[in-house]
């Protein structure tokens, strides 16, 4: 029987490919963080219907959702240098376009993509937050920013997390397209290896295993986070049965006093 598949190669490819894992994760984490901040901004603008920005973001979100990621990467790859040239022209600066790291094109494309997809999800989650809690925070005298940070976002996160998690996993897989903008991450390295060994199937199988493992690990992490942020939903059987405490219940004693206020 001919040796159609080199099983050993599938395994030995993996360490070589994993050398580029930091690049993949770098793209993922940076785009995710920046994308989430942008998404929150877009969601807030759209919720508060801030004129002009609201319209711009509505179109942007529709555009990003309506075009393939691959095309967006090319747009970033060719568009960012053009934008820089305009910038140089109007501001009389002299950025060298050739010195722009390829990473930047990819990062811009992914961050905007993440922002667009997550903004809708975040907007819905923010809308779901109980007004009563926000009002309670307002009466305490908390500032808008404090309320957002301490009440609204944690509440919205509970609702948004499952969808954010799926989006995060899409992003991990989406980074395999980064090569089109000249970034060498895992998939690009896989192509280089394959070009050298002509063992395409093995390399792509190695890649598939790595991405799969990444996704599974991410899913586990997301589940842990979900568990943590849902800790307020504790077992109902605890209702009405406080843990034994050393503290005397002073309030109850005071209640016994029958003083009447004049």
């Amino acid at each position: 029987m001919p040796k159609l598949i080199d099983f050993k190669l599938i395994l030995t490819n993996i360490p070589d490919l994993l050398q580029y894992l930091p690049i993949t994760l770098g793209i993922v984490l940076l785009s995710m963080v920046v994308g989430l901040v942008l998404a929150l901004g877009i969601a807030l603008v759209r919720l508060h219907k801030i004129p002009v920005l609201n319209q711009i973001f509505t179109v942007l979100v529709s555009f990003v959702r309506g075009t393939p990621l691959l095309v967006q990467l090319y747009l970033s790859y060719y568009g960012v240098p053009i934008a820089l040239r305009y910038w140089n022209y109007y501001n009389h600066t002299n950025f060298n376009i050739n010195h722009v790291p390829a990473f930047l094109f990819v990062f811009v494309a992914f961050a905007i993509n993440e922002a667009a997809y997550n903004s809708e999800n975040i907007r819905g989650a923010l809308l779901s937050v109980d007004d009563g809690e926000i009002e309670a925070a307002e009466t305490l005298g908390m500032t808008g920013w404090q309320i957002l940070r301490r009440i609204t976002i944690p509440e919205a996160l509970v609702v948004a997390l499952p969808t954010l998690g799926n989006q995060f996993i899409s992003l991990i897989k989406g980074t395999s397209l980064a090569f089109v903008a000249g970034v060498i991450e895992m998939t690009a390295e896989g192509q280089i290896i394959a070009g050298r060994t002509f063992r395409y199937f093995e390399v792509y199988l190695s890649l598939a295993i790595i991405y799969w493992a990444l996704t599974v690990i991410t899913e586990i992490l997301i589940r842990l986070i979900e568990k943590r942020i849902n800790r307020f939903r504790v077992a109902q059987h605890l209702v009405g049965t406080p843990a034994p405490t050393e503290t005397p219940i002073v309030g109850a004693q005071v209640l016994a006093s029958k003083e009447v206020r004049s």
Binding site: F232, R233, V234, L238, P242, T245, I249, V250, G251, A252
Partner: peptide
């Protein structure tokens, strides 16, 4: 919390309270 007689419930989440 003690004043309102709920000192033993300090670590309870709202969903656990009546």
């Amino acid at each position: 919390l003690d004043r309102v007689g709920l000192a033993p419930y300090a670590n309870f989440y709202p969903e656990q309270l009546s």
